[in-house]
């Protein structure tokens, strides 16, 4: 029997994560079966498997979760999502954790936020992304040394006309900027 005195006693952190993900409330049904952790192509590199992360979220261990590398190893392959017997949108929850970690500067030991910023920076200037610019800018700013290793590959792409020096710019850049600005003002999604 559901009464009006029924309260959700799950951790505040649980509510925070769930409310930032459309359909995220299904996380309440996690059976801790581990089909996510077993499916993940990067599961063995993760500090905590997604399942463990969900148990930690339930336990309210906010700091540890946001500092974990788990979500940064998520490649959005969606195996966990389609296999989850409780239909939890796991990949989307990983995005939510990435957002929270970036927002609070908790994303350590990973270059993923920098890559993401570089990428979206291009979108906001051109409306389209720009592979060569992206790669070179990202590497110069973040991994100047590892660029040397990639030179042969870059040359391979270049000689086949696959590295472009300039991105295309969309015509209605103002419109896109206005949409992005407004979306940022409203904030959140669900």
């Amino acid at each position: 029997m559901v009464t009006d005195t029924h309260q959700d006693h799950r951790s505040d952190f649980f509510q925070e994560v769930v409310s930032d993900t459309p359909g995220g409330e299904q996380l309440a049904h996690c059976l801790q079966c581990g089909s996510c952790g077993g499916s993940c192509p990067n599961g063995s590199d993760m500090q905590y498997t997604p399942r463990t992360i969900f148990a930690m979220i339930n336990a309210g261990r906010r700091e540890e979760v946001l500092a974990a590398n788990t979500m940064w190893y998520c490649v959005s392959c969606y195996f966990c999502t389609t296999r989850c017997p409780q239909q939890i949108p796991i990949t989307d929850l990983m995005y939510a954790l990435k957002r929270l970690a970036i927002a609070e500067g908790k994303a350590k030991d990973t270059d993923a936020p920098a890559l993401a910023r570089t990428f979206t920076g291009f979108v906001e200037n051109f409306g389209r992304s720009f592979e060569f610019g992206l790669a070179s800018r990202y590497y110069l700013l973040n991994k100047p040394l590892s660029m040397f290793k990639l030179v042969p590959m870059g040359m391979g792409l270049f000689t086949r006309g696959r590295l472009h020096l300039l991105p295309n710019r969309i015509r209605q850049m103002d419109q896109l900027r206005a949409i992005i600005k407004k979306a940022r003002e409203i904030g959140g999604a669900s």
């Binding site: 801790q32 079966c33 581990g34 089909s35 996510c36 952790g37 077993g38 499916s39 993940c40 599961g43 063995s44 905590y48 498997t49 399942r51 463990t52």
Partner: peptide
């Protein structure tokens, strides 16, 4: 058979 051993938290 690929699976997370949820009692050790490791993918096996």
């Amino acid at each position: 058979v690929q699976c997370e051993d949820t009692l050790t938290g490791r993918q096996e």
